[in-house]
């Protein structure tokens, strides 16, 4: 923590070396986050760039409470959502409701794929599903918060999530159904 604080102070003082160090420390995993929300690596890097610009511009608002990585991750997710809004990639199907869905918690598959393969499957979900699935399943946001973030109802978030989850489970059980393209 002490090291992080020193790094942050140096960044706030305008030390270019510290800024680059902070970037290098978090750029890799944060690009992984961005990758899950986008459809291509180029888009992911655009989000990463935008996200880090926001990180440095808002670094003074970081209260030194909690893990710096988690704070940066939230900024990256917000950057991804903004990016998706700009690209108009939200397509939320509100016709299906929770009661129409069959929950499959009892037969969750054991994921035997690697992180990149799974992320690639998530990216192949429809845009709206992809976003909500990432927010809820991976980031852990509750549906109430997701609804606020995306400007939808909580039930829509739930519905979309369940549908996404169901699709993904199908794909996880039969990965050959989807052609995996890591180049994105």
């Amino acid at each position: 923590m002490t090291e992080s604080r020193q790094l942050i102070k140096a960044c706030l003082a305008g030390d270019g070396t510290a800024q680059q160090r902070l970037y290098q420390q978090y750029a890799g995993p944060m690009l992984g986050v961005c990758y899950r929300y986008t459809k291509s690596m180029d888009d992911a890097q655009d989000v990463l760039q935008e996200g880090f610009i926001n990180v440095f511009r808002n670094l003074k608002q970081y209260k030194m409470e909690g893990e710096l990585g988690a704070w940066i991750r939230r900024i990256m997710v917000n950057a991804a959502l903004n990016y998706l809004k700009k690209k108009k990639r939200y397509q939320f199907d509100t016709l299906l409701t929770e009661e129409h869905l069959h929950l499959v918690t009892d037969d969750d598959p054991v994921i035997q794929l690697g992180a990149k393969e799974v992320a690639q499957l998530i990216r192949q979900l429809p845009a709206g599903y992809q976003t909500i699935f990432n927010l809820h399943a991976v980031e852990g946001y509750p549906h109430v918060e997701i609804a606020q973030m995306l400007g939808i109802t909580e039930s829509t978030s739930r519905t979309q999530y369940m549908r996404a989850r169901k699709i993904l489970i199908e794909w996880l059980k039969k990965p050959a159904l989807k052609k995996i393209n890591y180049a994105g």
Partner: peptide, 18 residues
Amino acid sequence: SSLEKQLQQLMSGLEFEP
């Protein structure tokens, strides 16, 4: 649930070189 835990664990290790 098991799926979400597995996903969170997997995705925490997802990294790319920008």
